[in-house]
């Protein structure tokens, strides 16, 4: 079987894969990084979002073989080595931006990618950027609030609790 090598959360990762092995399968089954979730498996829900060479992509809709040589960051790579949460993760905790938590890894990775490009997004820009991430619990309000807070913005004007 062909081999693939990439850097995952700063560490080299190599494994044998099939042509049809998806990145999310390589992450979960070969590397045992199960924080990246498979929700719909049809590139609708965004639970599997990871960063590949700095861009947020759906890991269920990219083959592992296409990530040869790439820098991949998953939710496991977001906190500091001592366990200190990334500011987006911390804001999700502080503002209760999750209920069941299934969508949360994708939400955090998408939000982090947004803030990288646009450090001061409006509520409308945040909602628009979350188009490809589905949450069936929260109604999104606290997710939006958490992302605004992570950007250092005033969250008191967000409509609903």
């Amino acid at each position: 079987m062909p081999q693939v090598s990439m850097t995952v959360n700063g560490k080299p990762a190599t494994g044998e894969i099939e042509g049809r092995t998806l990145l999310v399968e390589f992450l979960r089954e070969s590397l045992h990084l199960t924080g990246t979730h498979v929700g719909c498996d049809t590139s609708q829900c965004g639970a599997c979002v990871v960063h590949v060479d700095g861009r947020d992509v759906k890991a269920c809709t990219i083959f592992a073989a296409e990530c040869e040589g790439a820098e991949v960051t998953t939710i496991e790579g977001m906190a500091a080595d001592d366990g200190t949460l990334n500011k987006v993760q911390q804001a999700f905790q502080d503002h209760h931006g999750l209920q069941c938590g299934f969508c949360t890894p994708g939400m955090v990775m998408t939000a982090a990618a947004l803030l990288e490009k646009n450090p001061n997004p409006s509520e409308e820009e945040i909602r628009s950027y979350l188009q490809g991430n589905i949450c069936r619990c929260t109604g999104y309000h606290n997710i939006v609030k958490a992302i605004m807070a992570a950007a250092g913005q005033d969250t008191s004007k967000i409509a609903a609790e």
Partner: peptide
Amino acid sequence: VGDPAVRNR
């Protein structure tokens, strides 16, 4: 087109 992650790919 699509959503942000789709546009990145």
